[in-house]
């Protein structure tokens, strides 16, 4: 009786990684994401302050929004003044900017990149397309709302949002981080099954590990 319970717990804890071949299964972890609670309040406040002051964003132009990231990165707007810097590797980034619509092919990469980012991680969704489909609401190949696939912290509307809006979005995100409200990573872990269900519903050829830690 006791043994069976453990099995069930394990089953729930571990992911099947059904999309992978047997050979690949050994290469990837089958662990689920875990909720990591914040540490003691004073420490956490300090850490949150540091997190807000040093935002490394993933250099992944998922849609047209990437075009306004360039002015923001360069001299006219100079986002480095605010501690924001682009970072090419998802492992080291903490902000994911969804630059507008995400096509079916891209959402797969978005999910993968998002999962590879180390928590705490934040998502800024740019443009109408991420909120309710935007002008591609009837397209067969773009998703309509990004918050069904990954947790989103900040929405910036516009088509495209100007660099200034984006900057304002970053400011809002900083406020949110400092207030300790930006815990998309834990939200993702808590509702993991729901997110996974939504993702798998649209990504028909799921040939990657269930969770890319």
């Amino acid at each position: 009786m006791e043994k069976k319970d453990i099995n069930e717990v394990e089953k729930q804890m571990n992911l099947a990684n059904d999309g992978l071949s047997d050979k690949e299964k050994t290469l990837f972890s089958d662990a689920r994401p875990q909720v990591v609670p914040p540490v003691h309040k004073i420490f956490e406040n300090f850490r949150n302050w540091a997190r807000a002051q040093s935002l490394w964003m993933l250099a992944f132009g998922t849609g047209c929004g990437a075009i306004e990231l360039r002015p923001l990165m360069t001299s006219r707007y100079d986002m480095s003044r605010y501690g924001i810097a682009p970072r090419p590797s998802p492992r080291q980034s903490s902000v994911f900017i969804i630059g507008g619509y995400a096509s079916l092919k891209t959402i797969k990469r978005i999910v993968r990149s998002y999962e590879q980012m180390q928590g705490p991680k934040f998502v800024i969704a740019l443009g109408s397309c991420t909120i309710n489909g935007g002008m591609y609401y009837d397209s067969y190949y773009t998703i309509n709302r990004i918050d069904h696939y990954i947790p989103v912290d900040i929405y910036v509307t516009g088509c495209m949002p100007r660099p200034e809006s984006l900057l304002a979005g970053f400011n809002k995100l900083k406020e949110r981080i400092r207030a300790g409200r930006a815990d998309g990573m834990n939200k993702y872990a808590e509702n993991f099954d729901w997110y996974k269900k939504n993702q798998k519903r649209i990504i028909k050829d799921w040939n990657m590990p269930d969770y890319n830690w």
Binding site: I131, V152, I154, Y155, V156, T157, P161
Partner: peptide, 12 residues
Amino acid sequence: EYNWIEEEAEGF
């Protein structure tokens, strides 16, 4: 005007 930031998507 062009700045409108929300934490929840329902507000737009």
